[in-house]
């Protein structure tokens, strides 16, 4: 797979009365043809700036941006408009034209592209059918629910058959059920039409639902990225771990840990559950071999992209040397474990 979008050491800063704000800092990124990339980060992390760099609504302060064969950073404004016609975008607040009907909204990019009647009407009907809103063609945006508005937004963004779709917090204004519907539609857009999608969000649930790969942004940088399963199973930065914890409640939070400690005098160890079968049996045997008492005190196992994912927290009691030996043996066998005492000391 070749890269459809490539950012090379891109930085973007804004001059404000309060001084220079760096929204994106020395960021490099590749998005492969046909994938769904999720970009997650807290408010102000620079996510919106990142997508606006990809469709050249913003010019980087330094670095280069490529989409397909075009180097956006080398093109004049007039050519950039043509490039933008080939990139769809949907928004948190939908941004539909209130002065136009649903059909009029979807027809707008087609008019820009010079598509004539009756071809235009036919395309509009096909797109509205795809998003399931054909019967609303003559309604105005204010007559639609939030989910329907975003469907219109998606139909409008797809009007010119773009290769790339940018979704900036596209589900953040929707309730959970509608969010799931819209995400499912985006997944269909990706699978059936082969459109590459960049999904910007601050909700890990959205990433979990549709993304193939995830990039975690913090203070204008991508601090961690990789296949969704890997980042969920083994987040290596605190930022990523915090986001994972919002959807997987299998690791104890700091508060939970304090409560667990009060109730359980032994040592607390959290194990990441791998995909292979027989994991708990493997643990039991190692504890038994070293004469260590054990009890599961927290945890859960779920599913992500049809693979098991989860963590279990054990209370271990016995001689310190015996527990250390058991843990060392497990580590030697490649078991991913964290002793909560260590973690506490590290973060304190």
């Amino acid at each position: 797979m070749s890269a459809l979008v490539r950012l090379e050491a891109v930085s973007k800063s804004y001059a404000t009365p309060a001084g220079t704000v760096t929204a994106v800092q020395d960021l490099s990124l590749e998005v492969a043809q046909g994938e769904i990339l999720g970009v997650i980060g807290y408010s102000g992390a620079g996510k919106s700036t990142l997508v606006r760099l990809v469709n050249a609504l913003e010019k980087p302060t330094s670095g280069r941006v490529f989409v397909g064969d075009d180097e956006l950073t080398a093109l004049p404004e007039k050519r950039l408009r043509e490039v933008r016609r080939e990139i769809g975008m949907i928004f948190q607040q939908f941004n539909l034209f209130r002065s136009r009907t649903v059909a009029g909204n979807v027809a707008f990019p087609l008019k820009l592209a010079g598509v004539k009647q009756p071809e235009r009407d036919a395309r509009v009907a096909r797109l509205l059918d795809f998003v399931g809103l054909l019967e609303k063609a003559h309604a105005y945006p204010e007559q639609l629910s939030g989910g329907q508005k975003q469907r219109v937004g998606i139909a409008r963004a797809l009007a010119t058959d773009p290769k790339l779709l940018l979704a900036d917090e596209a589900t953040s204004a929707l309730d959970p059920e509608t969010t799931a519907d819209v995400l499912a539609l985006l997944k269909r857009v990706n699978r059936e039409l082969g459109v590459t999608i960049i999904v910007i969000t601050h909700e890990m649930e959205a990433i979990r639902a549709i993304a193939d790969r995830v990039a975690v942004m913090d203070s204008g940088r991508i601090v961690e990225s990789g296949p969704v399963y890997d980042v969920f199973a083994h987040p290596s930065t605190t930022a990523a771990a915090r986001f994972v914890a919002t959807v997987l409640h299998d690791r104890p939070s700091a508060d939970t840990l304090t409560r667990l400690r009060a109730a359980h005098p032994g040592r607390l160890v959290t194990f990441a559950v791998p995909e292979q079968k027989g994991f708990t049996g493997q643990l039991s045997r190692a504890f038994a071999d070293h004469g260590v008492e054990n009890e599961i005190v927290f945890g859960g196992i779920g599913e992500l992209q049809e693979r098991s994912i989860g963590a279990l927290t054990y209370e271990l009691t016995g001689a310190d040397a015996a527990i250390d030996a058991a843990l060392d043996a497990l580590r030697a066998r490649g078991v991913d474990l964290v002793e909560e005492v260590e973690l506490e000391e590290q973060t304190a």
Partner: peptide
């Protein structure tokens, strides 16, 4: 006028006069 719709039109590749 909602700046969001202006932004949307810009993202679609419309020029300022348009």
């Amino acid at each position: 006028v909602d700046p969001g719709v202006i932004e949307a039109a810009r993202a679609m590749g419309a020029g300022p006069l348009r």
